[in-house]
Design a binder for these strands. Structure first.
Lengths: 231, 231, 231, 231
DNA sequence: AATGAATGAGTCTTCATTCAT
DNA sequence: TATGAATGAAGACTCATTCAT
C-alpha cells in the first residue's frame, strides 16, 4: 500500500480496502494506519477522527457518484430515455465495483434524512456534524439530482419521455427504483427452490418496466436495443 | 416498562424503544435490561447475545411486515393494481410508524445478500449465523414476495395490469420502487432553496408513475380515487 | 447419566466426568446438574456450593486413595519392599485411571500446605474451610501415611529394607518419589528429538532405584521378579 | 510500584506480587495495572491477555529455574553427587523464596503433559497455545533436564555415583524426588498430635536417602558434610 | 425434595484518541 | 510532519447462587 502518493490519499485507499473487507465498525483506525504504511498519529493529523475519515471517504464516493451522472450527460447522441437507462446501468455497476463507495452514499442518504428532520437531527453522531467533509457534502448533494432532472427534461423535449410527466418527481422515482433494485438483489439472489429470478435475469425486465413507465406507449419488442446496451 | 407481560416480550419492547432512540450500536444490553425492569442476566437467559436479540426483533419485524402483505390480500373488492397501491401505502406507513422494524427488515436484506454469496458470507457476524431467529427468517423470507407476486398475477387476471408483464419480475420491481422511495425521502425532504419536492408532494406522483407502469394505458386524471386512498 | 442411584452420587459422578473433560474452573454447576439429570436447585440442596461439591469429591477420591494403601497391606505374603513397589504401581495406575481423583488429592495437599501455615491459611477460599467434607479430610489425611509407614516398618522387620532407615522419613521420601514421578511424566513424555525416555521406559528404572535406596545392598539382576510385577 | 524500569518488567513484577498474594485466578488485570502504576490498556499493549501475561511470567520463572541448574554446574570442585545435593537445596530454596515462579514451572509441567498427548491437547486454553512465551518455553524446556543429566554423568565419571546407573533415568528420578518433596511438605508440616516429622526434620533424611540411592554403598555417618551444607 | 426463572457482582478486553518527543 | 506508547471509558458476557413455587 506504500508508494509515493500523498498521505491523505494513501489513508483513504487503505480505509476503502478495509471497509470493503470488514465494514466500518469492524475496521480499526490502527489497521487503517498500518495498511497505509504510516503511524496512527499521522492518520489523526489528516483526519480528525474516524467519522471524519468516513465522511472524507463519503465525499470522494459522492464525487465519483456524481461523475457517473455527468458522464451520462456528456455522452452525445442519446435521447432522454436512453440516458436514464444508461444511468441505471452505470449506477448498478458502481454499486458492484465500488460497494464501499455505494454504501457510503446510501449511508449519507440516511444521515441526510435525519438531518432534515429537527427531531431526529440530534441522533446524528456529533462527530459527523463536525466534519468539514460532511458540510461539503451538504452543499453538493443536490447536484446528481439536478443532473438527473435534466435527463428527464431532455427526454421530454426529445419526445422519448411522455410530456405530461413532471421532471423532478419522475427523476426521483427513477432513482428510487434504482436504489431499490440494488437492495433487492439480496433476496432475489437466493438459489432456493422457490426463487426463479436472479438479479441478472431481473435487470432487463426491470429496465423495460422503467422505460415503459417513462415512455407511456408500450412497445412490443423494439426496445431490444436499449436492453442489450445494459450489458 | 410495565409489569405483566412475559419477560421475553418485555425485553423486545425495551429493545425496540432503545434502538429507535439510539440505534443498535449505541444501545447497551444493560440499558435494555434496565428499561425492561429486569436484570442483565435474565436478558441473556432469553437471548444468547445482542445479535440474537436483534435477530429476534427482526423476526418480529418481519412477521409484521409480512402481515401487511396478508392484509392487502385479505381486503376484498380490490383489483390487482389497487392492491399494489394499497401495499405501497401500507409499507410507507410501516416505515414511518415502526422505523426500527423497517430498518431491521432492510438490514436483514443486506445480510441476506451477503449470505447468498459464498465469498461474502464469511463477513457476516458469526453470532448472527448462530441465532435461531436468523434461521427462522431464512425460512420465511420468501413469503412476502410470494404474496406480492400473487397481487400482480391477480391484477393481470382482472385486467388492471397489462397482460404481457411477468408477475415475478414485475413485483420485484414494484418492491424495489417502494424501498427506494423510502430511502430517497432523505434528500428529498430537505427544505433548501433548491428543492421543490417534499416526500408528501412526491408520493402521489410516485404512485401514479407506478400505476402507469403497471397499467400501460395512460389515464389522464381518473386515478384520483386511488391516489386519495393513500392518505 | 440418569438411573436409580441416589442423587448425591449422581451429582458426584457427573462432576467427575465433567472435571475430567474440562477441569474444575471450566465446569459450570449448571452442566453438572444437567449431566446428572436434575435441576440446579437440587444440586445446591445436596452441596452448599461448588467448593463444597469439590471437597465432597476430594473426600471420595481420598477414600479410594487410602483404599489403595489398605489393599497393599491386606495382600499376604509380601515383604516390606514388595509392598512399597506394589503401592507405587497402584498409585501410578490410580493417577492414570482416575486423573480427577488423583488431582483432587494433590490439590488437597496444596490446600493443606496453606492450612498448616498460619500466614497462608487466609489465602484459602473460605468456602473450602466451610465445607464439612474438608474437615472430614483433615481428620483422615494422616491415614495413608500411617499405613505407608507400617509398610516400611514391616520391611525393616522382615529384612527387605535396611534397618538403619527411619520409617517415617523413609516413607515420606517414597511417597515424594511417586508424586514426582507422576508430575514428571509431562516433560518426559515428549516425543522430541532430544528425549529418549518415555514414562513407560522410565518406570522400571525408577522402581529399581527406589528399591536400591531402600535395600541398600545393590543387587545385580535378581530383582527382575519385582520389576515385572509392575505391569 | 516504583517508576523507572521498563514497563514490561514493571507489569511482570506487579503480577508476581499479586499472584503470590491472591493467586492467578483471583488477580484481576486491573489490579496488575494499578499496582504497576500504569493504565489497563498499556498492560494489554504489552501482553495480549491474562494467559499471555502468565506465560511471560512462566518464561521468566523457567529462565531463573534453569539458572539454578547452571549455577550448580558452574561451581567448581564438586563431584556429581554433591552437585545433585546442591541442586536439591537450590530448588527447595527456589520454591520457598519464589513460590509463584515455582508454581508457574509446575503448572507448565501440567500443561506440557496435556500438550504431549493429542487427546488432551485440546483441553489447553487456546490463549495459552497462542502465546509466544509458551512457544519459547516449548523450545527450552529440555535444558534443565540436559544439565541435570550432565550432573549424573559427571558423578558416574568421578565415581561418586555408582557406574551401573543410566544417567537420564537417574536424573529424572532425582528430579521427581525433589518435586515430590516440595509437594509433600504440606501434609508433613502439620503440627498435629500424630505427626512427628516436620519438613525441616525430613530434609536431611531425604537428602541422605537420595545420596544412598545414587551412591549404592551405604556410608554410616560421614556424609554429614554434605547434609550440613543444606542449611 | 425439586424446579428453573431470576439475580448481579465480577472481569476481561477493545479501541478511539491523545501527546510527549 | 511523524511516531507509537499511553490512556481509560465503555460494554459484552458469565456463572455461582438464591428463592418463590
Amino acid at each position: 500500500m506504500a508508494g509515493e502518493k500523498n498521505k491523505e490519499k494513501l489513508i483513504l485507499d487503505s480505509a476503502v480496502a478495509l471497509f470493503t473487507a470488514k465494514g466500518f465498525q469492524a475496521t480499526r483506525m490502527e489497521d487503517v494506519s498500518k495498511k497505509a504504511g504510516i503511524s496512527k498519529g499521522l492518520t489523526y493529523f489528516y483526519y480528525k477522527n474516524k467519522e471524519d475519515l468516513f465522511m472524507a471517504l463519503t465525499k470522494k464516493a459522492f464525487d465519483q457518484f456524481r461523475e457517473e451522472f455527468r458522464e451520462v450527460l456528456r455522452s452525445k447522441g442519446k435521447n432522454g430515455i436512453e440516458m436514464l437507462v444508461d444511468l441505471m446501468t452505470k449506477l448498478v455497476n458502481f454499486a458492484k465495483e465500488q460497494p464501499v463507495y455505494y454504501q457510503a452514499v446510501l449511508n449519507f442518504l440516511d444521515v441526510l434524512k435525519k438531518y432534515n428532520h429537527p427531531e431526529s437531527r440530534k441522533e446524528i453522531d456529533p462527530l459527523i456534524l463536525d466534519s468539514v467533509h460532511f458540510h461539503k457534502l451538504l452543499e453538493i448533494h443536490h447536484e446528481p439530482i439536478k443532473l438527473g432532472v435534466q435527463m428527464v427534461s431532455q427526454g421530454i423535449k426529445d419526445g422519448s419521455i411522455r410530456p405530461e410527466l413532471q421532471p423532478e418527481i419522475t427523476f426521483y422515482t427513477v432513482w428510487a427504483m434504482i436504489i431499490g433494485f440494488e437492495k433487492m438483489s439480496g433476496p432475489v439472489g437466493f438459489e432456493g427452490k422457490e426463487t426463479k429470478v436472479s438479479p441478472d435475469a431481473w435487470q432487463p425486465g426491470f429496465s423495460k418496466l422503467m422505460q415503459d413507465m417513462l415512455r407511456g406507449t408500450i412497445q412490443a419488442s423494439r426496445p431490444a436495443t436499449v436492453q442489450t446496451s445494459l450489458f
